[in-house]
């Protein structure tokens, strides 16, 4: 059973922001519900209000321009990302990463905003978006601000979001369009599972970046490396940003090993 709460479904962005401000601290945003309803069911989260974000038009858009790059509304689902022709063509890493999340049933509901705001170290759209140099647009009644995704994640399941703020859009720079890419996600089983280790690489003529999941309190990304980098340089850069732990899924040693292994494989494929 889920505890009692009030479900509200505002139709306008401003109404959503006002409601969030009014009930700050007591309200949670409900997107696909694939994380939040699990938390509520477990009793680890007991909000008094659930504010459904799925009726806000601004959060549903996908837009691309040569000048501004790609913009994805926070309530866009994994399925929409996987199928979108521009994303498939210009940001195939993202389309691939969205396809790595859960099962078909989950991808039909799960949103990019929910994936990032849960801020799990294993978020598949975390490591991949970081490799692509994404930024996050936050909004509240106080206005909007844009921050690098690197700064958005602050700890295990923690972000820079204030109580009255939402993620409005996720922004990908135009220079990441068409980047060569690769992603490896290690799971315990062939079916749907969270990442034991995930590594996503994006490379253009100007930079190479590696996003890594499940190896630190947040998804992390290397500094920009100058291509073509050697495997040793990339591994060294990765080592500087990860700090894996032993947990139910794998040991620290195994994670360190798999990060190196995946970087080697992906670099060979990119070459």
């Amino acid at each position: 059973m889920l505890h009692e709460f009030s479900y509200l479904a505002p139709r306008e962005r401003n109404d959503l922001l006002q409601l969030l401000k009014k009930h700050a601290g007591q309200a949670r945003l409900l997107a696909g519900g694939t994380d939040l309803l699990c938390e509520i069911r477990l009793g680890t989260d007991k909000p008094a209000f659930l504010l459904d974000v799925k009726h806000i038009p601004e959060l549903q858009d996908i837009a691309w321009s040569e000048r501004d790059g790609l913009s994805i509304g926070a309530a866009v689902t994994c399925l929409e990302i996987m199928r979108h022709p521009v994303i498939r063509k210009k940001f195939p890493l993202l389309a691939h990463a969205a396809g790595q999340i859960g099962s078909a049933q989950l991808r039909n509901r799960a949103t990019i905003g929910g994936n990032l705001c849960t801020a799990s170290p294993c978020a598949d759209l975390g490591c991949s978006s970081l490799a692509l140099g994404a930024r996050v647009e936050l909004a509240s009644v106080r206005g909007t601000r844009v921050i690098p995704m690197k700064e958005f994640f602050t700890g295990v399941k923690q972000t820079q979001l204030q109580d009255d703020e939402i993620v409005q859009r996720v922004l990908y720079p135009p220079d990441a369009a068409g980047a060569a890419w690769g992603m490896e996600k290690l799971k315990r089983i062939k079916g749907h599972d969270l990442a034991v280790v995930s590594v996503a690489i994006a490379r253009t003529a100007k930079w190479l970046r590696v996003g890594i999941g499940s190896c630190a309190p947040t998804p992390v990304v290397t500094a920009d490396l100058a291509p073509p980098a050697t495997v040793a340089t990339v591994v060294a850069a990765a080592r500087r940003v990860i700090a894996p732990i032993d947990d139910v899924r794998a040991s620290r040693e195994f994670r360190l090993f798999m990060v190196e292994e995946f970087i080697g494989r992906l670099m060979a494929r990119l070459a």
């Binding site: 479900y7 409900l30 696909g32 519900g33 694939t34 309803l37 699990c38 659930l50 078909a104 049933q105 989950l106 039909n108 509901r109």
Partner: peptide, 8 residues
């Protein structure tokens, strides 16, 4: 297809 346990 969706998981009806995760939809309100």
């Amino acid at each position: 297809a969706v998981n009806s346990c995760l939809v309100l």
